[in-house]
Design a protein around this nucleic acid. Structure first.
Lengths: 277, 277
DNA sequence: TAGTAGATGGAATGAATATTCTAATCTCAC
DNA sequence: GTGAGATTAGAATATTCATTCCATCTACTA
């Protein structure tokens, strides 16, 4: 009770339980062992469930929480839940905490602090990327690109740098690329020659550029095989796509670094080249 | 409802939501977007909490679950919880080990291995970036940009995506930007109006694009304050520059991910914006 | 313009849940 | 063996929660 139990992290809680274990009564010791062994059950279960699985009456569970300085089971459960969210989304939590603490301080506005913030954000974006992209999708995408006569690239607005970069790399590798950039008129005309023998790589993040949303379905309807890189399964370039890469947690347009999509398209291009031999 | 919703995995559920999204009513679409973006909130929250955060009445949440074939919110929540449980199981170390082993295996040419290689390369590029860029340079660069009437951006060839991205962000923040891209003729003409009141951000990596090497000294000679982002102190855009950011260890053109320079320009732009207030 | 089918929001309901309370039990010292 | 203090189990309670129901609103059709 020497610490405000509400603000405890999961690891701190483990330490506290281990430390007090000897001083607890028999039943409470039994519960202590159970919760350390089954943290997930505690995080998601009800008092009754935890009680049954650990073989004690429900009231004992509540007494256990009290003994640790919590106001009740629900309060203790929050700590166990924090472990779950930390495990699945390291980026989200870290980013939020960072933003909150730095954004408003004077130090946080200095360019050096801004840079380190973007760097760490980019780091977690990369971790998320490598976790969320599966081999199956990459293989399918590579196969599509390998068969394509011309590769059409569609990425406007904030996604344009990614499209440009992919165009650059693919051309370096000797592929025929048509970059749909809308220069000098209609994007529709630029894409007019695309057929089922070609392929389209579409890149779009919120807010989805209107031209992208308009052109994409047309090409899909014409039977052009399509690879989509986007931030949500609900984006306008998902339906009808042959392969979808979903990059989650993209920050708002002005703040995004494009690190993850840049890395992905790079891997696509190089992977295509290596697979060709 | 073609599938027993109870036995659905999280990924299957995501697919199902994406697939039916268009067929759903307005409110239900809104909820679909929220739950795909905030799966953790759904996994751990109550109906009332999810309802409040997504800005809909609680009953709509339940109707959403029904529309997906679940018996109610609680049933749907189980699927979101399974994601959390799965997330903790494979430890961080195990994931890292898997990446390492993939890297060196015979299958190193498979797209998935290529991606993980680029990801880890990008990671170390970011570390190098944050170590090699110093606060003094960032402050100086920010000061130059803050005083500039128009900001000229010069980045051709492989660096073009970086220039485009910087242009995009700066414009979003309300800055006047001239992107020297050479469309429709001479880059010299595009840069003709640049004066000592303006500023130039030049980005160039090996092999240095000829036009960049030619134009840069001209602008320097005209007294335009200049920020250079490059990979060597011997590059043609170093001499005469007001501030130089040297990004070391850039891979060869076709293999570079541009992660480090993208991050840097992002930090410059946002740092400029934050310092302005 | 009137009518209809569907969607929506909010209050009502009933179930499930955490917590509290009290009588019973156990432990240990004498 | 007996009594005091702590500990426990289970019933009682009060709260929170998911769900349902219905009146209202909206969009589309005739």
């Amino acid at each position: 009770m020497n610490k405000a139990a509400g603000a405890m992290s999961y690891d701190e809680l483990r330490g506290a339980i281990a430390q007090r274990h000897r001083a607890l009564s028999g039943r409470l010791q039994q519960i202590a062992e159970f919760v350390l062994d089954h943290p997930t059950d505690v995080a998601l279960g009800t008092v009754a469930e935890v009680a049954q699985r650990s073989g004690v009456p429900p009231s004992a569970i509540v007494r256990f929480a009290h003994a640790l300085g919590f106001g009740g089971f629900t309060e203790m459960q929050q700590v166990f839940r924090s472990r779950l969210v930390a495990g699945v989304a390291p980026s989200y939590k870290a980013r939020l905490a960072r933003m909150k603490s730095q954004e408003k301080s004077v130090l946080g506005r200095q360019p050096a602090a801004v840079l380190s913030r973007f760097v760490s954000e980019a780091q977690s974006a990369l971790v998320t990327l490598s976790q969320s992209v599966h081999a199956r999708e990459l293989d399918a995408a590579t196969a599509i690109l390998a068969k394509a006569r011309d590769i059409y690239l569609l990425g406007l607005g904030g996604s344009f740098p990614v499209a440009i970069h992919l165009a650059y790399v693919l051309r370096k590798l000797g592929r025929r690329v048509v970059l749909l950039d809308g220069t000098g008129g209609s994007i529709h005309e630029q894409s007019h020659a695309a057929t089922t023998e070609d392929a389209l790589v579409a890149i779009s993040f919120r807010n989805y550029y209107p031209d992208t949303a308009r052109l994409f379905p047309e090409l899909v309807a014409r039977g052009v095989p399509t690879i989509s890189i986007t931030d949500s399964l609900l984006s306008p370039i998902v339906e009808g796509a042959s392969v979808v890469f979903e990059i989650q947690d993209m920050p708002e347009p002005a703040l995004r670094t494009l690190v993850a999509p840049m890395c992905l398209v790079q891997a696509l291009a190089i992977g295509l080249d290596l697979a060709a031999d």
